[in-house]
């Protein structure tokens, strides 16, 4: 059984019209999302979560007394 690639799934979801219900302004909204700022805005949205995941990973491998693996 083949596994669905999460990035492929996300890409298909984002590119589909189903996320944009308003027919009249759909082209403008799509143009406002998928423009030259898309990857920068995605990075901005992801950045805090990346920092938090780094902290959580450090905490996860913490040994008694504060030492890490």
């Amino acid at each position: 059984m083949s596994r669905t690639d999460p990035l492929t799934f996300l890409g298909a979801l984002l590119a589909s019209g189903t996320v944009l219900a308003c027919e009249t302004c759909r082209p403008l909204v799509q143009a406002g999302i998928f423009n030259e700022h898309f990857w920068g805005r995605l990075a901005i949205t992801l950045l805090p979560f990346g920092v938090i995941l780094f902290v959580a990973a450090r905490v996860h491998v913490m040994r008694p007394g504060g030492a890490r693996r």
Binding site: I52, A56, A57, V59, H60, M62, R63, P64
Partner: peptide, 15 residues
């Protein structure tokens, strides 16, 4: 005893 796994679980849930 390892507290790390519970700490990271609580931390992510809190986030």
């Amino acid at each position: 005893m390892q507290r790390g796994p519970l700490l990271s679980a609580g931390l992510l849930l809190g986030v």
